[in-house]
Design a protein around this nucleic acid. Sequence first.
DNA 1: TCCATTCATAAGCGGATGTTATCAAAGTGC
DNA 2: GCACTTTGATAACATCCGCTTATGAATGGA
Lengths: 297, 297
Amino acid sequence: MNGRRPFPNPQALRVFLCVAQEGSVGRAALSLGMTQPGVSQHLQALENQIGRALFHRQGRRLVLTKTGQDLLPEARRAVQALEEFMQAAQALERLERGRVEIGASTTMAVYVLPRYLTEFKRLYPEIRIKLESGSSERLTQRLLQGEIELAVVEAVEHLEGFERQLFYEDELVVIVPPEHPWARKEEIAPEQLAEVPLIVREPGAMTFRVLGSALEQAGLEVNPIFYTDNHEVTKRLVLEGAGVGIVSSVVVRPNVRVGNLRALRLKGMELRRLFWLFYPKELGNPAAEALKNTLLS
Amino acid sequence: MNGRRPFPNPQALRVFLCVAQEGSVGRAALSLGMTQPGVSQHLQALENQIGRALFHRQGRRLVLTKTGQDLLPEARRAVQALEEFMQAAQALERLERGRVEIGASTTMAVYVLPRYLTEFKRLYPEIRIKLESGSSERLTQRLLQGEIELAVVEAVEHLEGFERQLFYEDELVVIVPPEHPWARKEEIAPEQLAEVPLIVREPGAMTFRVLGSALEQAGLEVNPIFYTDNHEVTKRLVLEGAGVGIVSSVVVRPNVRVGNLRALRLKGMELRRLFWLFYPKELGNPAAEALKNTLLS
DNA sequence: TCCATTCATAAGCGGATGTTATCAAAGTGC
DNA sequence: GCACTTTGATAACATCCGCTTATGAATGGA
């Protein structure tokens, strides 16, 4: 009952193309895997719809009308666009195309994720990755709003509709330059932190909060002289001898290996940081799924 | 029973676009002029076909999946291509686009048709015209094969499936330069042609045949000294004083008006040339129809 | 003129497409 | 917290579409 049908029938368009190419209804039917009457009917339907003949029926011969000639490329374009839609869908499925947006807390984004993302890029070179770093709160919110599909954060609460897996286990360490008196020790007592100039991240950052709550439990208090918003700055300050730093161990692993920084534990304190990978129970994006698997492999 | 459907449903694509734009199934239904369940079903069908969710259903809110975001432009392209097909068909109908191929015997093509084609171009600037000149035989054949849609030729026989209308009425005239002894006469006796050097078109051309058969009927014979394949050459030769020419009157009308050539009739002879416009009984091309009308107006 | 080929038409069946009616769930206001 | 509104999903159903098989008509060739 719908007065006008705004679209030409794609199947009819394909029939049109095929008949034009084969030059015969019967052969077109064969080539399309359908019967000859079906082809005839589609052709007629299309001609009725546009109100003009597409083929000149002279006897048993079918010749394209000028109208037909003019519409042929348009039909081709339309059919191709429809096919490309399906191909795009399949390409997304085959990971030959697509995008993922992942969020990670700063430490992970800078010191851990790059090697995974590089590996992922090697596996699926056509997938575009967008990595967003930020605070755990912000990332959790973004995840809930569906603006990122994966999040590597420290948050511990359970999120409704999401799952999580442990991604990385780290701990806070005290770092000093090799010349420092503590350089030979494996660990020091927490109280000793009060005796040195302390360099930590700003109070809003999770790094600081882990430290703060641990010390608080032990009845201690620290008075940092430097707050930074960047682990590299902290390291630099420590290297220059400005004081004693507290950072995630992953941040200084290369320095410790090279030997220009020393990392120590705080005796009797648990400064573990657990980084979880959060993701929706069912993430409808093949690319995101693949990245998840890469991260957890 | 057909295992796989190679095409996405265009209606479903449109629904997809509309829901994405409106952000709501209900509003999309309103905007599309259909009911809400219909929209829901189309969306689900499309999602089933590609095997992925296009929207993230969180509560009553619909948010595009990454997959959905990636497929959105593809869907847009496909829908647009389909619409453009219909628009192209309508443009052909409205003469905002299209082509005509017309054939005309040489005389008509050179001396008569240009002014009509110019007028046609003024009326329908977007229509492309292809003018083919040739012998009446060749053009008739091309017309029968559907390779040209209109033909202005002299042929007299009826063509099955075609109609004709008189397009132009002409006659053969004898032309001489103003200095010629005949220049003051209105007509001359056919026998006198034997006394002068004669310039005519080659025997294959219709111009010659009309003349030949007329003279034959009168029991006369001509011995041309020049055969040319081009009216302009004939005129030139006459202008230079090389002899007396015989051409269609339309060919020399401007010269007669200017006065550098004189045209005479052959006394007692009928040298009429009737040019007919032939065209298929039903020509399925709006542009051809329009050109036909212009030619006959 | 007969025959083979080819396209058009008729009739029928199954599925797709849209409808109305109804349900479930999520916000909203008190 | 509870009723109410809003919104999307589901069910049942009518209609139309698209394809089939069977048959007819017309053309072109021997």
